[in-house]
């Protein structure tokens, strides 16, 4: 099965998930389409703690990322209720479209940037209260209940992935609690991951198939197989942080 087929299957999967909703997907999917390869992520039971059996990550194929496109950014903003308030300097941007230009050759790379979900995150090291933490399944989060807003993690992040909420917010979504004076960043759509959606808002929204969500610990997952076959680089790999987000075409 080549990539395009894989992508098609993914889209169908997404459609099914939306159509059927919730955790019935895995079972129903098998019943509906026997014989079709299904890239499904087993939804964990609600009462089961996450574990290091999984390591969630993203594979980003920069060669497919279109200049000027911001579909993933819009999807992320909608998913988490991020709004424009006082302008780009202080508004939260969990994901951003970065354009890289080679100074000598003019070669251009377009790519989405977000929290890289490091295995050894500097933000977690420096946080005085332990608010910045990594779940055992590799997702780096901020426990805003104990975040004091010191912003040291923002100083420490090599990817500038973190944002301080600069103002009082209202009408936050139930799935994305956010509040003034605390730091936040991409959660790898942790609420979707826990629900068993098996994808993130950005990955769902990208029609070009730039972003692939998956389990880096599962050898059979699409992301692992593609990484094994095609490779993928870490941003600022020299820092040795072993990021959960990998890039192709750098």
């Amino acid at each position: 099965m080549d990539h395009n087929d894989m992508k098609e299957t993914n889209k169908i999967d997404q459609y099914r998930r939306k159509f059927l909703g919730g955790s019935a997907v895995a079972a129903a999917g098998l019943a509906l389409a026997p014989g079709v390869f299904l890239h499904t992520v087993q939804a964990k039971p609600d009462d089961e703690a996450v574990s290091n059996k999984n390591r969630w990550g993203l594979l980003i194929d920069t060669t497919k990322c279109a200049e000027g496109c911001s579909d993933c950014v819009t999807a992320c903003n909608n998913e988490h209720g991020l709004r424009e308030i006082h302008g780009p300097a202080t508004d939260s941007q969990w994901i951003r479209h970065v354009t890289l230009k080679n100074k000598q050759t003019g070669h251009q790379i377009d790519m989405p940037m977000m929290c890289q979900h490091c295995e050894k995150p500097p933000c977690v090291d420096v946080c005085p209260t332990g608010a910045s933490f990594k779940r055992t399944d590799g997702i780096v989060l901020v426990d805003k209940h104990i975040c004091i807003g010191c912003r040291y993690c923002m100083m420490a992040c090599p990817y500038k992935a973190r944002n301080l909420v600069h103002e009082v917010l209202t009408d936050q979504l139930p799935t994305a609690p956010r509040g003034k004076g605390t730091v936040e960043s991409c959660t790898l759509c942790v609420h979707k991951v826990d629900r068993g959606d098996g994808t993130t808002a950005c990955a769902e929204a990208c029609t070009a198939g730039v972003i692939l969500f998956g389990d880096l610990n599962d050898k059979n997952s699409e992301i692992s197989q593609r990484l094994a076959k095609e490779g993928g680089q870490q941003l600022r790999a020299e820092l040795g942080l072993n990021t959960g987000v990998r890039y192709q075409g750098l």
Binding site: D125, V126, P128, I146, I148, G149, C150, Y152, G181
Partner: peptide, 22 residues
């Protein structure tokens, strides 16, 4: 200047010993 100066007590009750700030 903390984002949540009201939560100062947390700086004492929650500790991350790897943090140079702590």
């Amino acid at each position: 200047d903390l984002g949540r100066a009201d939560r100062l007590i947390i700086a004492i009750t929650h500790y991350n010993f790897k943090s140079i700030f702590a």
